[in-house]
Simulated scan of single mutants.
Amino acid sequence: MTFDTKNDRYPFSQITARPTYEWPNGARLAVYFALNVEAFEFGRNPGPDFTTMPAAPFHRGFAYRDYGNRVGITRIHNAFAEQDNPLAVLANLSVYDACPEILVPFRERGDEFVGHGRTNSERQLDMTPEQEREVLVAVRDRMLQEEGTRPQGWLGPFISQSAHTPELLVETGYSYMLDWWFDDQPQYFRTDNGPILAVPYPSMEMNDIPALINRGMSDRDFEAMLIAAFDQQLRESEHAPQVYAVSIHTFLMGQPHRVGILHRVLEHINRHQDEIWFTTPGAIAEHVLQLPEVQPTGTT
């Protein structure tokens, strides 16, 4: 497959040159945390186990990630419940079959559920358009059945996209995606089926996997980074509205020696409750889609 070397999915614009707007209650910084809740097929590579090169049947990697669903997710839920902060739950469809009970506490809290593929054992990049459409529809319909509402947002497993993903997302009824991180404000993204909103998602930076595993950042430095980024974006948001987003995984941040990071970061953020909007990516997308100041220029 060949790709056009010119990106025509969204126009260039510098954040300082755009129209200014506010989030609800006059806030200028929107804050959300995304919790990845994933299930894997045993015997298929779930990704590195971070010790040695994995080999079939990949039991170490499977067990490591299963720990997150059996134990870690409860610690994470409690951290957010104790401070009454919302979450976006990015759930694989297979979680509903493997361990549906772990989603109940988040459903009862009213957290947002975001489509995150059937299983993290497959990637959209490897699919035909027909196969990918089948996945998007399956996730949409099963979440409607389980949650009572269809998911508005999407993040591909492994943040993987094919050349057809944006068009297929619009076709199957998704209003925003998290796969593209190129800005600190939501931006309209062109597709052949009309625009879709790209909501900022920390795929490369404030995400526990690339930070702690790929870059080898210490727990202490990861915590300091989350706080430093929040403080900086809060200052900058006085001049331009921004989105502060953090991505976490049950098997990493749910470890007993790490969950304290969440408690301390949330405490720091909550000291500024009068200045921020602590929310979910779906609420952010809904707000932006209704703003007359922000229109999908050059994305139709």
Rank of each mutant, 00 (worst) to 15 (best):
S175I: 07
S175M: 02
Y176E: 04
M177H: 14
M177T: 08
M177V: 09
M177N: 08
M177F: 11
D179Q: 04
D179I: 02
W180Q: 05
F182E: 14
D183E: 10
D183Y: 03
D184H: 13
D184R: 06
D184Q: 05
D184N: 14
Q185S: 10
P186I: 12
P186G: 13
Q187T: 03
Q187W: 07
Q187R: 14
F189G: 00
F189N: 00
F189A: 00
R190K: 15
D192N: 15
G194M: 01
G194W: 06
G194Y: 01
P195E: 00
P195L: 02
P195S: 07
P195V: 07
I196T: 04
I196A: 02
A198Y: 03
A198S: 15
A198E: 01
V199N: 08
V199P: 00
V199Q: 00
P200D: 00
Y201N: 10
P202H: 09
S203F: 12
S203D: 11
S203C: 12
S203V: 14
M204K: 13
M204R: 13
E205P: 00
E205K: 07
E205H: 12
M206H: 11
M206D: 10
I209T: 14
P210H: 05
P210A: 05
A211Y: 02
L212M: 15
N214F: 13
R215C: 01
R215K: 13
R215G: 06
G216M: 06
G216K: 06
M217Y: 03
S218A: 04
S218D: 01
R220T: 10
D221M: 07
D221W: 00
D221T: 04
F222N: 02
F222S: 01
F222V: 02
E223G: 04
E223Y: 01
A224H: 09
M225Y: 03
L226C: 06
L226E: 03
I227R: 13
A228K: 13
A229L: 10
A229N: 14
F230C: 05
D231H: 02
Q232I: 07
Q233D: 15
Q233M: 15
L234N: 07
L234I: 10
L234Y: 11
R235N: 13
S237C: 11
S237M: 04
E238G: 13
E238R: 14
H239N: 14
A240F: 11
A240K: 10
P241C: 08
P241H: 05
P241I: 06
P241T: 11
P241A: 14
Q242H: 12
Q242V: 01
Y244H: 10
Y244I: 10
Y244C: 04
V246M: 03
S247W: 05
I248S: 01
I248F: 12
I248K: 05
H249Y: 08
T250F: 00
F251V: 11
F251E: 15
F251G: 07
G254Q: 07
G254F: 02
Q255K: 14
Q255I: 06
R258G: 02
R258E: 12
V259A: 08
V259Y: 15
I261G: 05
L262F: 10
L262V: 09
H263V: 08
H263E: 13
R264F: 04
R264Y: 05
L266M: 13
L266Y: 11
L266D: 09
E267A: 14
E267L: 09
E267G: 15
H268I: 04
I269M: 12
I269G: 04
N270F: 03
